[in-house]
């Protein structure tokens, strides 16, 4: 599904990723944990194609294709999805217009017929209902006036609509209380399948009690320093990240 080899990336000339190696197979859920400033968010932006992140070395292959050669929208159309740490508010663009435009762009890329307004509305209502989102929320401007939890649910709704084959969840737990977290985690879990892989990026073990990963990696100062099973998350929770050194040591 996804193969990251010796990935180096810089932001404003400063090297943040210093040789990441990671292979994710279809259906697997990998968690990346690490201290603040370890490069977790940089990795998610490099994979999703945000401007301003320069790859200086290495490669990323997604379903046999060179991911790094693609524009952000092309990656999304190919099946890469980023659930944002801070979903963006877009006044004046309704959720429905936004998602219909996105879904039809992705469908067009895949050679599928575009959905008309009625087909689209039927689909989004069904998916929204499963996430406990009402009509008012899907009609409103994208994320405007949404609580932290509603924004995250809206991101998961987008994921449910676009049906990516690989989803990156960037600190999806940040800013959520326990009820909101459960709701979002349920949404994510319902999207787990043998064909869909996920990369869950988080600082805390808490999220991984709800979205249980197959593999856990520790990212520290630009490198994956340790990998293990889901029990590694519990160990990190108990011991903290101190043993993985400081930025100077890396």
């Amino acid at each position: 599904m996804l193969e990251i080899k010796n990935l180096h990336a810089t932001v404003d000339g400063k090297e943040i990723l210093k040789g990441i190696n990671l292979t994710i197979n279809p259906g697997e859920v990998h968690a990346i944990m690490g201290p603040n400033g370890s490069g977790k968010s940089t990795l998610s932006y490099v994979l999703s194609g945000r401007d301003g992140y320069e790859v200086t070395e290495g490669s990323v292959t997604f379903q046999g294709k060179d991911l790094l050669a693609m524009e952000a929208e092309e990656r999304a159309a190919e099946g890469v999805f980023l659930a944002f740490q801070y979903p963006v508010e877009i006044p004046g663009v309704s959720n429905t217009t936004f998602l219909k435009t996105a879904l039809n762009a992705v469908r067009k890329h895949k050679g599928l017929p575009e959905l008309d307004a009625m087909q689209f509305l039927k689909l989004i209502r069904a998916k929204a209902k499963a996430l406990n989102m009402n009509d008012d929320m899907i009609k409103r401007a994208v994320n405007v006036g949404f609580s932290g939890g509603e924004k995250k649910r809206n991101d998961i709704l987008q994921m449910a609509m676009l049906e990516p084959s690989f989803a990156i969840l960037d600190e999806t737990d940040s800013g959520l209380d326990i009820d909101a977290l459960k709701l979002v985690a349920d949404g994510v879990n319902s999207l787990r399948s043998a064909e869909r892989s996920m990369l869950v990026i988080t600082h805390y073990q808490r999220l991984l009690s709800y979205i249980v990963p197959d593999h856990v990696h520790v990212l520290a100062y630009g490198k994956i320093v340790r990998s293990g099973g889901k029990e590694l998350a519990l160990e990190l929770e108990a011991k903290g990240y101190a043993e993985f050194g400081s930025p100077e040591a890396a």
Partner: peptide
């Protein structure tokens, strides 16, 4: 906002 839209497949 531009990146958010593009990250959802919108050209």
């Amino acid at each position: 906002a531009l990146f958010y839209l593009r990250a959802r497949g919108i050209p």
